[in-house]
Amino acid sequence: MKALMLTAALLLTPLASAQSLYDQLGQKQGISAIVEEMLYRVGGDERIVHHFDGVDIMRVHQLITEQVCNVVGGPCEYSGESMRVSHEGMGVTHADFNALVEHLIVAMEKHEVPVAAQNQLLAKLAPMYDDIVE
């Protein structure tokens, strides 16, 4: 009986996704590295890099890292403005938003984040669309 329960528990464990989303992203250090990779790619993207003209990119990196860490349940507080306030008047388009999402996805792929974890993070960030895009 004990062996049976142990077997059942072992079989079910993978379904329960042993690691939290925060852990699957590599905790704060992993998230910081993913955001860095994403911003590095943004810097080379002429479609959207102009949105970051005159912006303190280190501060942007810190804020996005905090925010991602926070929305995936990590021990972080987001210290920036709301999405609506921080993107007001920037004229971010649907195409710009997609460009950033694409850089995030490629950054996650580079850091070997599992597809399931990628999707969970994207689903948590996608609702920000309405506050960011004009």
Binding site: S17, V115, A116, A117, N119, Q120, L122, A123, A126
Partner: peptide
């Protein structure tokens, strides 16, 4: 599209 649908698939 459901980004994080059943089985955490899109």
């Amino acid at each position: 599209a459901w980004l994080d649908g059943p089985f955490h698939r899109t």
